[in-house]
Design a protein around this nucleic acid. Structure first.
Length: 126
DNA sequence: ACATTGACTCGCG
DNA sequence: GCGCGAGCCAATG
């Protein structure tokens, strides 16, 4: 139901930088219970070598977008956010809620380590 | 327009 | 395991 007048009963959708759409899509594709590194997300988004851009995109992402940002960790499995920060605790909590073991600020059982293998493990791609 | 910053990563020692 | 430097590039001042 569209309405002719200005006031909308639903909250306005958060606006995102269209430049990051590919990155968001790659993050959204991470299955629950799994994690992916910044570099892997970048590669999956068609931006190989631009891991930092993924970090920038995530930082600039407004809350309210249903993005599984917490499934993105460093290449070595550590959580990127500062230890003890609110975001850090939130990420660890959400990961554990999905069955991902977090030990000492890092994903306990990456079962990978190489982005190459991770890609296959996550999406079954070659 | 220039300089700095940063939710990154990899190679080296 | 840790630190350093280089490459990365949009955002920010």
């Amino acid at each position: 139901m569209t309405r002719p007048c200005g006031a909308t009963p639903v909250p306005p959708p958060p606006r995102v930088n269209p430049r990051y759409l590919r990155i968001y899509a790659a993050i959204a594709a991470i299955p629950p219970g799994r994690v992916a590194s910044y570099g892997q997300i970048a590669a999956r988004a068609g931006l190989p070598g631009r891991a930092r851009l993924v970090g920038t995109a995530l930082r600039d992402t407004p809350d309210g977008v249903g993005l599984p940002w917490f499934r993105v960790v460093h290449a070595d499995g550590t959580i990127a956010l500062p230890r003890g920060s609110r975001g850090f605790r939130e990420q660890a909590r959400r990961l554990r809620a999905e069955g991902v073991a977090v030990r000492n600020g890092r994903v306990a059982m990456p079962a990978f380590g190489l982005d190459h293998d991770l890609d296959r493990a996550l999406w079954g791609l070659g």
